[in-house]
Amino acid sequence: MPDEAALWTFDRFESGQTFGTVNIAMDEAKKAEWVTLFGPSDSSRLPGGMIVAAMMEAYIRAIQPRPNGNVHASQALSFTGAPALWNDILAISVSCRDKEERKGRKWVSFGVEASANGQVIMTGTIRSIWAA
């Protein structure tokens, strides 16, 4: 278990709090992993699923250390249609939208926004049941 003083607990989250921007390179290594799972494509555009995978990587990296046992309860995402291409760097910002205790569970809603080349390509909310 990580140092308790540094651990992101429910009590530390505040509505409107930002966790910064994490840059995720959509490089040849990531493309090779994608192709291994889903097969080759002639398109230079990033598949939506790859944008979601990058968003999850940024969300996990932005809020550390985390307690064990969190539950990713839901997510709602909206894609803008702006282009993102392989070899772009996605800038993904993460924030706390709100938090609430309900039926003994600690719910935290996180906002995410992904941009490529200065254009927003996706926005969304991740809802988690926070373990500590």
Rank of each mutant, 00 (worst) to 15 (best):
A53T: 03
N68S: 11
S128T: 14
A91G: 11
A25W: 00
G69I: 11
T36I: 01
D11I: 03
I63V: 11
V108I: 13
K106R: 15
D88W: 00
R102E: 00
I60T: 11
A58K: 04
F38P: 06
S78R: 15
P67V: 00
Q64F: 03
S93A: 04
M122P: 00
F110C: 03
V52C: 05
N87I: 03
R61P: 04
M1V: 02
K30Q: 02
M56I: 11
S44A: 08
E57H: 09
L85P: 00
V22G: 04
T9Y: 09
G49W: 01
L37V: 12
I121R: 00
S15V: 09
D42E: 15
N87K: 10
D27K: 05
G81C: 09
Q119R: 15
D42Q: 15
R66S: 13
S95L: 04
M1G: 13
G118W: 12
F10C: 06
W34F: 12
A131G: 06
N70W: 14
M56T: 12
W107N: 08
S78E: 14
T80K: 10
N70L: 08
W107S: 07
G124H: 08
Q75A: 14
F10Q: 11
S74I: 08
T123D: 06
S115P: 01
E100H: 10
P83A: 10
I63H: 02
A132N: 12
S44I: 10
T80P: 06
A116M: 05
T21Q: 05
V120F: 04
W8T: 07
D98F: 14
E4P: 12
E100A: 11
A6G: 07
L37S: 09
S74Q: 09
L37K: 09
P40A: 15
I121W: 02
A32M: 00
R127C: 07
A32T: 01
W130F: 10
M56Y: 11
V22I: 14
G49C: 02
I121N: 04
P40E: 15
K106S: 13
T80H: 05
F110R: 05
I92V: 07
V120T: 13
R66K: 13
T9P: 04
P83V: 07
V52K: 03
K31R: 15
M122T: 04
P2I: 08
I92G: 00
F19T: 05
L77F: 11
L77V: 02
P83T: 08
D27G: 04
D3P: 00
L90D: 01
V112K: 03
V71A: 08
S44E: 11
L7E: 08
R66T: 14
V35Q: 07
A29R: 08
I129W: 09
T9L: 10
T21H: 01
V94I: 15
